[in-house]
Amino acid sequence: MATKRNAIGVLLGIELVLNGANLNFVAFGSRFLRSDTIGLDGELMALFVIVLAAAEAAVALAIALNFYNNHTTIDVDHADELKG
């Protein structure tokens, strides 16, 4: 996510991060690492994250599309007009 110049590459990275976070949630929410759970804490959080990831991926892709329409490139290094 931090190293890719391609916008799609960054999105891929974001997905990986979120999936990794999901795995952490499930893992730490299991009954092996916490005593008082309802058994499904981790999976519940992971569900939320999945939904959010999906929405966010859609929005990000829309931004990337618009960016390509305006700049004819999806090199994120060229997206520095918000500087200053």
């Binding site: 931090a2 190293t3 890719k4 960054v10 997206a79 520095d80 500087k83």
Partner: peptide, 17 residues
């Protein structure tokens, strides 16, 4: 502080990390 806002996304992502 101006200098922080380079506009470069990869830097911002680095900051997040």
């Amino acid at each position: 502080l101006h200098a922080v806002q380079t506009g470069r996304i990869r830097q911002y992502v680095m900051f997040i990390v």
